[in-house]
Design a protein around this nucleic acid. Structure first.
Lengths: 222, 222
DNA sequence: TTTAAAATTTAGGCTAATCTAAAAATAATA
DNA sequence: TATTATTTTTAGATTAGCCTAAATTTTAAA
């Protein structure tokens, strides 16, 4: 069990996030410096340390990528971040925009037992309140191409792919409005004021969906 | 709003705890060093820094006490610690001997909003799983009328209200003898020779309690 | 009351994580 | 290709928070 500082964990997390949108998973020093809001010199410094610990593969003037160990740690930090965000929104009723800063702190709490029990407590959610996938204990993300219904685009055709909330209240609600997994959903309108959404289900039934409900539904593009 | 490091918060917390069992609230450098498991020299160093920040009143070779500001912060750290412990035991089903180390980390998460919502979520608990009082947002503790089991009277009915020692060894011992907070305790006999105590638990189970154990248990009169 | 022991502070040093300024390497342009 | 601009690294410094060893102050004992 490797114990890392919160700072080191953050480096790994950001390298992971940048590597996902970069060429061949190679992250540039300056991009990392910008993300971390540190000087490029500090980043170079830390990259050498992480390289010594075999958490990253670093080549001078070229860039950095995660090793297998570094990747595993980065993914677990992301898992913790997203589980905490889920807890903050679902249980403590924070709004999605309030939780990031707090989760940035909570993600560095060191206790596997804690995060396992939190995962259990939340009902093993697969997506966080922003619709980002939550990797499981083994680091496996559930299917990509799924977005939160709250973030879905107007006029496009989707299929209901996943629900985040396993509470009986929410499932009963879905039952009542007769919405099931793999039903077709098209967004007719989004109301800016209260963020409710007008949807068409299976090309025949029109419904108004609350912001809360939409945030718990995940759809994939047809 | 003063932002302190986790290290500084810990100093204030331990000064508070030691001042409660000390003469006139004056804490000695060595006692603090022992509690923090740091060298006395490090403690002197930090006391000077905390003194500069007006969080403690520090007099060389004499001792340290909290200022009004320092006290307020210490009590809020304690509040966070105890609310988190309550959450870990009540909601995540940890046993009370597992939670201390995790709460030591969680107590330093910086967010008033978070702790307010957690307090609300837990239903404004007044005591934590160890029976320690949880100060409210204003820093006010609710006091129970508790006495040490070692000082309790023969033949009287008590409830186990609090334990002094949060070491995992002691809490495991309580688990083993199946003694929990709010269990009924009646003192059947006190042995003068070694100061062991015969107690009846919940009117059905008889036990012998050592002097050491009894000094770590606190009971309230029914 | 003098001396020995204990507690505390001072002095000097170390590591992690940051910084700025200058140097070096790479990329872009004339 | 030569020169300039950009990116990255190196060098040297700083701060927080710790340490050990030595010096100082306080307390206890003879």
């Amino acid at each position: 069990m490797i114990l890392l500082s919160a700072v080191e964990e953050n480096y790994l997390k950001y390298i992971f996030q940048l590597s996902e949108i970069s060429d061949k998973g190679i992250v540039k020093t300056n991009d990392l410096a910008y993300k971390l809001e540190h000087s490029a010199a500090s980043v170079t410094d830390m990259l050498k340390k992480l390289s010594d610990k075999k958490l990253v593969a670093y080549k001078k003037y070229y860039g950095v990528s995660l090793t297998k160990t570094g990747l595993q740690i980065a993914v677990q930090v992301l898992r913790k971040h997203r589980l905490w965000e889920t807890f903050l929104v679902k249980n403590l009723k924070f709004t999605w925009d309030q939780v990031h800063a707090i989760a940035e702190q909570l993600e560095h709490i060191q206790s596997d037992e804690l995060i396992d029990r939190m995962d259990e407590y939340l009902g093993h959610p697969k997506f966080d309140p922003h619709g980002d996938p939550i990797p499981d204990k083994q680091g496996v993300f559930s299917s990509a191409n799924v977005i939160c219904l709250a973030d879905a685009k107007l006029k496009k055709q989707y299929l209901l792919a996943n629900v985040n909330d396993e509470s009986s209240a929410f499932l009963k609600y879905l039952n009542k409005i007769q919405l099931k997994l793999n039903d077709k959903i098209k967004i007719l309108d989004k109301e800016e004021f209260d963020e409710t959404i007008q949807i068409m289900i299976n090309e025949k039934k029109q419904m108004t969906i609350s912001k809360d409900a939409a945030q718990n539904m995940f759809v994939k593009v047809v």
